[in-house]
Simulated assay, not measured.
Amino acid sequence: MQLIECVPNFSEGRNLSSVESISRAIVGVKGVHLLDVDSNASANRTVMTFVGEAGAVCEAAFQAIAVAQSLIDMRSQRGAHPRIGATDVCPLVPLADASMQQCIELSHKLSARVASELEIPVYLYAKSAKRPERRKLAFLRKGQYEALKKRIEKENFAPDYGPNIFNARAGATAIGARDLLIAFNINLATTSREIAEKIARQIRRAREEDQVGALPECTALGWYIEEYKCAQVSMNIMDYRKTSLHGAFLEVKRLATELETSVTGSEVIGLLPLQPLLETGRYCLGSSKNKESADQLISEAIDFLNLGDTRPFDPQKKVLDYRLQNLPPLRNMTPSS
């Protein structure tokens, strides 16, 4: 079975009725399983994770983007998280027997339909990007939605799909194929957004300058989350084989100490693979062997990272491997072509 994961990020985290409507659009497509819905009011953002085979995933993504456009008006949208559209980004991730090339081809198919039928400008990013600078979301989000009207008129920022006409309500959407990533937020013992931003800048600078101890394949932002009454360093670990959970946690902890604050814990947005949790568990126990049980290693990792600092962390619900294990066969539920 060629299984594909889709993780659309919607610029709505406060109106839970709208979030529910988008969720229904996804689960209404036969052959798709919605695994996780993660909303945050301060970020004003919801991350949804669903899986299925190519045709079903493409259809569910399109239906979700269509509903998001009808319910989210970017002209009045505000939140801590950078964004360019109602559906800010829609990544496609190969799982099981699916290939990256298949996801790249699917991203083109989805982008063409979104641009044609919904009149939303689409930018291809990550592995699907046609231009090297568009691989990174930071480039596409420069100036955010508020700068999009002027940027889209420039020849060098024309969408990959759709006309270079500003869609005031929906903004634009980034669609692309990528590998698994971990959205990892680290909580600070301060309410200072300035301190969180300073830590994030130091992490980005160290990576860009290839300094000793830098965190490769890792992005970082700083912000304040009202629900938690604390500042956070929000990180995307693009390759957990190069930057571990504990490595990122320890580096933020070190930088926080230099700025006379501390780390209180962390959270994962969406789902994460099992392997990086196991690696952190082994780090905690000082073991490179496989004699410890998965449950023991996960427990060690959760305690070390304090993943329950602001909200409960249940591995059975937040670890992708476990969510997939509990799914019924997908092939029998996928519409025939």
Rank of each mutant, 00 (worst) to 15 (best):
A56M: 06
L71P: 00
H33Q: 14
I26E: 01
Q69H: 13
V29N: 02
I65H: 07
Q63W: 01
Q102H: 04
R78C: 05
A43T: 08
I84A: 00
I65S: 12
A54Y: 04
A60P: 08
A66L: 07
P94A: 10
Q101I: 07
D36S: 13
V51R: 09
Q102T: 15
G79H: 12
D88R: 03
H81M: 13
D88Q: 07
T49D: 08
C103N: 02
A86I: 05
S107T: 14
H108Q: 15
I26F: 08
S99Q: 14
V37K: 03
V93D: 05
C90Y: 00
N40F: 02
V27D: 10
I72N: 07
P94C: 11
V47S: 03
V89L: 05
V47Q: 02
D36K: 13
G31Q: 09
L71W: 01
R45D: 06
Q69V: 03
C90G: 00
G28L: 02
R83W: 00
C103R: 09
Q102P: 03
C58P: 00
Q77F: 12
G79I: 08
P82V: 08
V57W: 06
G31S: 10
A43N: 10
G52E: 03
Q77H: 15
E59R: 09
A60R: 07
Q77S: 14
M100E: 11
N44T: 09
D36W: 00
V51Q: 09
E105L: 10
V27S: 15
F50P: 06
P82K: 10
Q102Y: 05
V29M: 05
P91Y: 14
G52P: 08
G85Q: 10
Q102M: 12
